[in-house]
Nucleic acid binder design. Structure first.
Lengths: 202, 202
DNA sequence: ATATTACCTGATCGATCGTTCAGTAATGTC
DNA sequence: GACATTACTGAACGATCGATCAGGTAATAT
């Protein structure tokens, strides 16, 4: 993702996995079994390598986790920094942020999935939770602004509304699979529709 | 929860923890750190006992997990079996199920939290996932029925709507804490309001 | 007082954990 | 063909994992 995902620009050295490929497989395994339940031996087995070979690509199992969480957090924070999040009235900006969050979630599905399961068991995990909290605060501020503008219901607390709606968005990682029945644009549209207007017919 | 949670009906033998007390502490730890990241030594330390003392109360660490997951699943299935889930039009029944699910989730918070984090790493976990799927199917059938009755929007797939709305409900375990700013009745009301009518003002 | 029941300790087991290290293998560049 | 670069093996490490077992302690019922 950070390095070249191009064809094959004549890599030097013995052929094999590079760091990003190992990371991608690791994140898949972490999501299948959980980070703690996944051993380095599991990862080596899935790649067809020995355990020690992996330590050529990274310093520790935890470093893999840190790299993956950064990937997810960079994407989410990018949603709030994109121009659509700053232009228009609060309701329009809120819709853009919801839509952007869904798209990032789908495009970086394994990384965001991993992020959403972090519980704070280590310094790496706690740092990721801190960045998530900062993201939530910025979104809550946007919801509160939309409430003051009369565009979001004020009979429910803004922080609660934010948590519920982002709970809905985040839950997508539990079932969405690319290539399935729902494409990313359709999903983003549906989420914004249900979040803003509810499931009931008017 | 299954045994006597009454006052103290004169228990015989040396005083100490009983099985349900050990289970409650275990579930708390599983939720704090994750099931796999929690060792039997962690649990013993939290209780002020030795590891071997714990095996007087249960056969294996996994049995604790199974007991906890049953507690959560019994509660959720009870929501669909209560009378309110069968009387009235589909929209009313759907509202009752949503409300019931929120209340079970709050009342059995630690157990449901644990259930929602299960990934299928063992037979016990896979059996729990199977029961969850059956629950989801019953709810989806209710949503589909409400769509046919014209009471739920038909421009979004019923299964997607169900997943999104229950994603919202389930996400409550990530932040709700009893005794906090929001009480259980208020939360149930807010969830039903946002799920059915959305966050936007009309 | 004593038997019964329940609860707990300390030592230990084999398996698996993440990690290290010294050496080997295969490629592109010159 | 020498050389730098990249990728990997096999054996071992201390630590921790879930679990077992034989024995010890403290309350209640009779």
């Amino acid at each position: 993702m950070s390095a070249s995902t191009d064809a094959s620009p004549a890599r030097r050295g013995r052929p094999g996995y590079d760091r990003d490929q190992v990371l991608a497989v690791a994140v898949t395994l972490f999501n299948e079994q959980g980070y703690d339940a996944t051993s380095v031996a599991d990862l080596a087995s899935r790649l067809g390598l020995t355990k020690s070979a992996l330590y050529h690509h990274f310093d520790s199992k935890e470093q893999l986790l840190a790299l993956a969480l950064d990937e997810a957090l960079d994407g989410l924070e990018g949603v709030l920094d994109q121009p659509e999040a700053s232009i228009g009235d609060p309701a329009e900006r809120l819709g853009a942020v919801l839509r952007g969050a869904v798209l990032v979630l789908v495009d970086k599905l394994p990384y965001v999935t991993l992020l959403l399961r972090v519980r704070g068991n280590s310094d790496v995990e706690r740092a990721a939770l801190e960045r998530r909290r900062a993201f939530d605060h910025r979104v809550t501020a946007l919801v509160t602004e939309a409430q003051r503008a009369g565009q979001v219901r004020a009979d429910v607390d803004g922080a609660v509304t934010t948590r519920l709606v982002f709970g809905m968005v985040n839950s997508i990682v539990e079932w969405y699979r690319p290539g399935g029945a729902v494409d990313r644009e359709r999903l983003a549209h549906d989420v914004v529709a249900v979040a803003l207007d509810g499931m009931r017919t008017r």
